[in-house]
């Protein structure tokens, strides 16, 4: 497949602590094509960030252990690469932006220098040339070039996140891993940053793996969606599949938990209970205890992967009957 950029196959990741084993990622499959945005949706502890870090191979080992799986980037399994080859891919081909822009920047280095440094790390060009490139990147994300010499504390949160985006895109990566990039920002600033990401994505034809818990952002940004629950992809497909033909009870529960702006409901319908403890995952379907449609088979036989329509997969024995 020419068009395919990233393919994650049957990924299993555990965290080993003193006596316990945290089963963070339990057999995840993902596919991302060139120029597409894939939304990775789920709640705290679902395993979203762990997956992204595994792709970039920045999981701390120990405690993290990749037990099984392959991560193909343009046909090469990243998990098989040498450290040296991988470090060439980091930043050049794949880069990542994190939720908190304050901790991603060096407080005692001017932002212009930080961007130029990133560029020089990956491209053999002169300092002066890198500085010019850095100014270009700053202006691309809407920050005046004259602020090149200023330090992170002189910028607001939204601007810092734009600096981080400029840095991540400085080497024109093919894949951008964006981990909750706007969660720490106010809505009007979030709107600016999302607009900017969309614009840059089109200009540079970057693919984006967007991690978020906000279904509004998914609707706005993503072509495809994978919903993660307790380390498993419970539903995946095009954004239209997920939003219009929701098939997994968990996905439906997420939508029902959201207060709507356009309707007058008297009460929200939350999902009862909580996500299972990842150190003691239940047997059978992991959503069993919280699912309003669960039957005996869900526990004893476990969940079953079904294809609802072309490319729309659901990990649920009763998909199609219920929801």
């Amino acid at each position: 497949m020419e068009n395919n950029l990233l393919k994650v196959n049957d990924l299993i990741i555990e965290y080993h602590s003193d006596k316990k084993i945290v089963q963070a990622v339990n057999g995840v499959n993902l596919e991302l094509n060139k120029g597409e945005t894939l939304g990775l949706v789920g709640e705290t502890g679902a395993g979203k960030t762990t997956i992204a870090k595994a792709i970039l191979r920045i999981l701390p080992d120990p405690p993290a252990k990749i037990k099984q799986g392959k991560i193909f980037f343009e046909g090469t399994d990243l998990l098989e690469l040498s450290e040296k080859k991988m470090s060439h891919i980091k930043g050049n081909e794949i880069s990542m932006i994190f939720q908190d822009p304050m901790t991603a920047l060096n407080p005692i280095m001017s932002i212009g220098k930080q961007i130029a440094e990133t560029i020089r790390l990956h491209e053999k060009i002169s300092k002066a040339r890198a500085n010019i490139e850095a100014i270009k990147m700053l202006e691309l994300v809407g920050i005046p070039g004259e602020r090149f010499g200023e330090y992170p504390h002189q910028f607001s949160g939204g601007m810092k996140q734009r600096v981080v985006i400029a840095m991540a895109l400085a080497c024109k990566p093919k894949l951008l891993l964006a981990d909750e990039p706007t969660t720490a920002l106010d809505v009007t600033i979030q709107a600016q940053v999302l607009e900017l990401m969309n614009k840059l994505k089109k200009e540079l034809n970057t693919s984006v793996l967007l991690i978020t818990h906000d279904l509004g952002i998914v609707a706005e940004m993503c072509d495809k969606v994978a919903v993660i629950y307790a380390g498993e992809v419970v539903e995946s497909g095009s954004a239209i599949d997920i939003f219009d033909n929701t098939a997994h009870p968990y996905t439906k529960g997420l939508f029902d938990s959201l207060p709507k702006l356009d309707s007058m409901e008297s009460r929200l319908k939350p999902i009862k209970g909580m996500m299972p403890d990842p150190t003691e995952l239940p047997s059978g379907c992991k959503f069993y205890d919280r699912c309003p449609y669960a039957v005996e088979d869900c526990k004893s036989l476990g969940a079953e992967k079904k294809e609802m329509g072309s490319g729309h997969y659901v990990l649920c024995r009763r998909a199609g009957e219920v929801c």
């Binding site: 607001s156 939204g158 601007m159 809505v187 009007t188 600033i189 979030q190 709107a191 600016q192 999302l194 607009e195 906000d214 279904l215 509004g216 952002i217 998914v218 609707a219 706005e220 954004a239 239209i240 939003f243 219009d244 939508f255 959201l258 702006l261």
Partner: peptide
């Protein structure tokens, strides 16, 4: 108006005009 238009709606068919605020 700008604040309300900035909320991302969980609806893939939502088409609306966003008022993007300049600056902070």
């Amino acid at each position: 108006k700008a604040l309300l238009s900035a909320i991302p709606l969980p609806d893939v068919h939502a088409k609306r005009k966003r008022i993007l605020l300049e600056g902070e």
